[in-house]
Computed example of a mutant assay.
Amino acid sequence: MKDIEASDYQADADCDLTGRSTYEDFGLSDRKLEKRLLKVRRKLGDFQDKMYAHGKYAVLVCLQGMDTAGKDSLIREVFKDFNARGVVVHSFKVPTDLERKHDHLWRHYIALPSRGKFGVFNRTHYENVLITRVHPEFILGENLPDVQKVEDVDAVFWEKRFRQINDFERTLAETGTLVYKFFLHISKEEQRQRLLRRLRLPRKNWKFSPGDLDEREYWADYQRCYQDAIRRTTKEHAPWFVIPSDCKEGARLIVASILLQLLEQYEDIREPELDPEIKKHIEEYRNELKKQH
C-alpha cells in the first residue's frame, strides 16, 4: 500500500467534485484497513496527550457530507484511542429558538475546543451555506433585518456569509486553533444502498427518515453547493480535504493519516519540561517512594 499523502486529497480553489473518486480501499480487505487504522489512531492518541500537556494549541476537525456519508462511525473509530478529557464532539442539528436569536456562527463559537483539546464538529458552520442555500426559505427563520423574503437571499447575501466564515476560521487559526475540514465524498448509488440497509436492519431503522428520500431529489444542487463552498473557503490555514467515502474503512484510514501527518509537523508541540528544582531531586523522590509500604 502506498503512503497516504495529505496533498493528494487537499482541495484547491478549482476543486471539481465530479472528477474526484468516491471509492478507495488501497487494494486491502476491510480487516487490513482496520489494522492499519489501529496503528495510526494510537499515534494520534499519543499526540493528543502531548498536545494536552503542551496546552498552547487546539485542533478543530470539521466533518461534512451527505446523509449516510459515515460521519458518526468515522468519529467513533478514528478517535477511539483518545483520552476522553481531550476530545469533545458536537453534532449540530436544526438550530434551536435560542440559537436563532444569535448570529449563525454563535453556536459554533461556544462549542470550540479549548487549548490542549480536539474538537470535532459533526456537521458544522458550513450548514449555513449548504442546506440553507439549497433551501433559502430556511433563512427567513433567522429573522435577519435585511431579509424580508426569499428573493433577498441573493448572491450578495451568500458572498457576505462566505466572508464571515472565512473571517471566523482566520481568527481561529491566528489564535492557536488548527482547523482541518473533511468532505466525506460518496456517490448517489452508495447513499441509496446505505439507506436501504437502514430499512433492512431493525437496529438501523431509527436512523431513517422519509425526509432522506426528499433530499435525494436535491442531490445535484447539494453537490454544486458543496463544491462552491469548498472552493471559496479552502485556505492554507483552514484546508479542505475531499475524502473518497464509499468504502468506510478506507475513509477512516485516510482521515486519520492526514491528521497525523499534518499534526506531526508541529515540532514545537511537546511535553513541558519538568521544573529544574524538582528534576534535581528525582532520585530522592524515587528512593523515598521505594521505602514506603
Rank of each mutant, 00 (worst) to 15 (best):
A220P: 00
A220H: 12
D221N: 13
D221P: 05
D221A: 10
Y222H: 02
Y222P: 01
Y222T: 03
Q223T: 15
Q223H: 09
Q223E: 14
R224Y: 07
C225T: 14
C225W: 12
Y226L: 05
Y226H: 06
Y226E: 02
D228Y: 09
D228S: 12
D228C: 10
D228G: 08
D228F: 09
A229E: 04
A229L: 12
I230H: 01
I230S: 02
R231G: 02
R231V: 05
R232H: 01
R232E: 00
T233K: 01
T233H: 00
T233R: 01
T233A: 03
T233L: 00
T234E: 00
T234R: 01
K235Q: 00
E236I: 03
H237L: 02
A238W: 01
A238Y: 01
P239Y: 03
P239N: 11
W240C: 04
W240N: 03
W240Y: 06
W240T: 02
F241W: 05
F241N: 05
I243W: 03
P244S: 00
D246V: 07
C247L: 03
C247P: 00
G250V: 04
G250K: 04
G250R: 04
A251L: 02
A251V: 01
A251W: 01
R252H: 05
R252Q: 12
L253M: 07
L253W: 06
I254W: 08
V255D: 05
V255R: 02
A256M: 06
A256T: 10
S257D: 07
S257E: 10
I258Q: 08
L259V: 12
L259E: 14
L259N: 13
L260S: 02
L260D: 05
Q261V: 08
Q261C: 13
Q261K: 15
Q261Y: 12
L262E: 15
L262M: 13
L262N: 13
L262F: 06
L262G: 03
L263Y: 04
E264G: 02
E264H: 09
E264M: 08
E264S: 09
Q265G: 13
Q265S: 11
Y266M: 08
Y266E: 13
Y266T: 07
E267K: 15
D268S: 14
I269P: 14
I269Q: 08
E271H: 15
E271R: 15
P272C: 11
P272F: 14
P272E: 13
P276N: 05
P276E: 08
E277S: 11
E277Q: 14
K280E: 14
